[in-house]
Amino acid sequence: MNEYDITPNAQEATASVAARPTASNLFNLKRFGRYCSKQIHEWKRGLLLQFFSLAGIYTLLMFLFHSTDEKGLTPSIASTGIQIIIWLGFFVYIAKSASSLADQIGRRSKRVLYLVVPASTAEKYIAHLLWTIVLYPILFFAAILVAQYVSEVASSMIRGEAFNPGTPLQGLLTFWNNNMYSTSFLVNYTINIIVTFTLGATLWQKNSFLKTIAACFLLGIIVIVFYTTLLDKEELESLFTFLVVGNYLDSFNNNDLVWILNGISAVEYLLFGYIGYMRMKELEINETKR
């Protein structure tokens, strides 16, 4: 009468294995792959929509700012104005994407199905980080690439300007190699934003994006107030500086300072990332809030 093959023996075997948090219960590459594939397919429509909106917005922006460029000498995308717009947009987009975790776990009707998928918390959490670090940036720059050429074609056709598309994504990274920045800053900022906004999403599910920004501002103000108060008391200030960067600051060159800051950031990522993970692990359905 039974058409299935759940033998009692097989069930006992899994039970005895599952009694402890085995490695497979924490992370399993095959299952992780399945989870990623599930998400990407379920979001296909949404991601396509994002891609076309981004491409559209940037085509329009590049088209509008095209004429401010020296005619025909530098491609539109390489102008500082456009580059600032692109990088600013990139950070906002990445932050929004990191915050999108809140959409998956915000409403109860979504959270329930998110939590019961048989993948571990680590797999779900790492999948989210992977999307924000790899998928969304690729999507963003693909949209920029499309915008770069479409806007060039549009300007040359509508305004009759010289057609000079330049190389793909021309000069975008050189923006970060200018005197005051380095590319490590870009990586640092990006990861920082992802980790911070992901943590924000686990802390607040409603208006997570805005609340995280507000929290960052608040934190910034506290640090500034703290530091300016210290500035009045020189001894304290030097003690504080000593604690944070050591007294051998003078012996470091600019490059070393960058790496010290990156090191401090790395500790911050780990801390924020860990808190975010623990929040996800302890996530429940809150029956009182519908």
């Binding site: 069930q11 899994t14 039970a15 294995v17 599952a18 009694a19 948090p21 085995t22 497979s24 219960n25 399993n28 299952r31 939590l115 048989p118 993948a119 571990s120 918390t121 797999e123």
Partner: peptide, 11 residues
């Protein structure tokens, strides 16, 4: 099967 469900282990 003897495992606390609150851990939400995949198994």
């Amino acid at each position: 099967d003897g495992v606390e469900v609150r851990h939400r282990y995949p198994e």
